[in-house]
Design a protein around this nucleic acid. Structure first.
Lengths: 139, 139
DNA sequence: ATCCTTATTGCAACTTTTTACAATAGCACA
DNA sequence: TGTGCTATTGTAAAAAGTTGCAATAAGGAT
């Protein structure tokens, strides 16, 4: 806990409590600045707060994602990774080399509107992942 | 094995062998006509071929999906379900009631082209799932 | 500062998924 | 029909993820 970021007020504003477990989890996600799997989060956050357990990690990640503090991205074979919610974006993954490109949400807006009018669904920030071959792997 | 569908030649054309295990798995997917989780496939296919084991199911589903005999859809919290590959489509899922709507691929084509030109990736049949609230759950 | 409500956690047991490796059995070919 | 190559499988064990419930503790109210 050397950094001074305090998520407590934001959490409380959403009816969530700040606990040392959540602090450790958020701290890890903040400093790794990328996507982490629940297991990765568990292993790292455990160093900061050894009493942390797996169920807590899984539940916390789900809860924080539901309240939009985290984004859950579905990567590869049904794997899920989390990252701190910044601006909304999606992922484009090369299934040969695993390379990842971030895709802005803007180009998806039109599609969202179309789907909403044709299905009656109201689409929200759900994460979308595209798969393909990156330019290097197309040879 | 009362039905007479024979996938063997198609499998062999892809360098895959036909085994009783794969037969049972394909058979189950064929007759359930929907999305099944690996566990569901395992439990049902086991009735047809009791020697079947979990690792075989997971590997087979992955292999068959890679060769496009199956489609893998990423549903909900990183869960994965499989279905026989028919025409390409995507899913729109209500995260309140779980209701699912199929989305044709056509409306996504334009987006695919845009993303390809802006990222250099060549997109393929990767499965995409959207999340939102269905009309009933919007109240 | 203390109490009270209830969100959150840990525990323990369980289910699901993955991995490594040796044994098996498709199937192409002679 | 038999032989050989190797894809595929089972086994065993580990890793990852889930569930129910009782105990704990966050933080608003007194």
């Amino acid at each position: 806990m050397t950094c001074s970021i305090n998520y407590a007020p934001q959490l409380r504003a959403q009816g969530l409590r700040m606990t040392p477990q959540r602090n450790a989890i958020l701290h890890v996600l903040h400093h790794s600045g990328g996507h982490l799997s629940p297991t990765q989060v568990y292993k790292q956050a455990r160093k900061e707060y050894p009493r942390l357990t797996e169920p807590t990690v899984y539940r916390t990640l789900e809860d924080l994602a539901e309240k939009k503090f985290l984004l859950a991205a579905h990567v590869g074979n049904g794997k899920i990774v989390y990252e701190l919610a910044a601006k909304q974006h999606h992922h484009l993954i090369c299934h040969k080399c695993g390379g990842t490109v971030q895709v802005e949400h803007a180009p998806l807006e039109l599609l969202y509107r179309q789907l909403e009018s044709s299905t009656g669904y109201k689409l929200d920030s759900g994460h979308v992942t595209f798969f393909g071959l990156c330019s290097d792997c197309q040879s």
